[in-house]
Amino acid sequence: MIAAFNTLLSYKELLLNFTRKELKVKYKNSVLGFFWSLLNPILMMLVFTVIFTIVLPIKNIGGIENFPLFFLAGFLPWNFFSATVTGSTTSIVGNGALVKKVFFPRELLPVSIGFANLVNFALELGVFFLFVLITGLVSDPKYLEFYKFLPYLLIIIPILFTFTIGVSLLVASLNVYMRDVQHLIGILLMVTFYATPIIYPIAIMEGRAPPIYIQAYKANPVTAIIESFHHVLHGVSHPSFNLLVYSAVVAVAVFLVGYTVFLRLEPAFAEEV
């Protein structure tokens, strides 16, 4: 695996070019182009805000202040995860022509999708900070402290990235052998979305199910990562140390498993796609 890392490093220019291609191609023929990646989370936020503050108000159950901010704080990292995993699933199969004809480390394909989405994520966070300035400061003086906790993102985002790439490598390589993965992944992502406190606060789960289920629910690494984001971006507080360690350990483990499986399956990609 160390050898694989070294090869990867020597291909960093190609990785950059693939990433650039991903970004360019995504919005090539749309009028609003790049703004879609910013518009999308804002529109989603509006939809869920209307649903949960007007149609099915959950404000009182969870006691969340500033639901739009809460939603974005969890949804933006989720969006990064979900878009990267979805895109990676078909990245090897979809580039079959390339994989069959040219040699390059195949992991560049899913990894470049991860980097492209990371760029999107960074821009979205930029817009989010503006949003905090506008709505947060008006509603609650605690947001004056907001910037103090931002450095935590430098720990949380790499954890999110590592975890996401691990899952992506796994699904990308499995999908070469079983195309069911690409169908299954949509459903799994939807289940995970609802099983993660993104549109509701984690607190509302307490007492709703036997403790063992709650334990399982909290063990979800996505939940751990999203909760850290909630702490920093919505709660204006330190993420819990335990959560950080837990999610970091899981992220590295998932990455190692994903990459190992990928490297194991990779030699036959050219024959199987």
Binding site: K21, K24, V25, K28, N95, A97, K100, K101, V102
Partner: peptide
């Protein structure tokens, strides 16, 4: 390797890209 010429061209990108 000149195996498949233009393998990996993306239709939406320009010739230069």
């Amino acid at each position: 390797a000149l195996l498949e010429l233009g393998a990996g061209f993306h239709p939406d990108l320009t010739g230069r890209e």
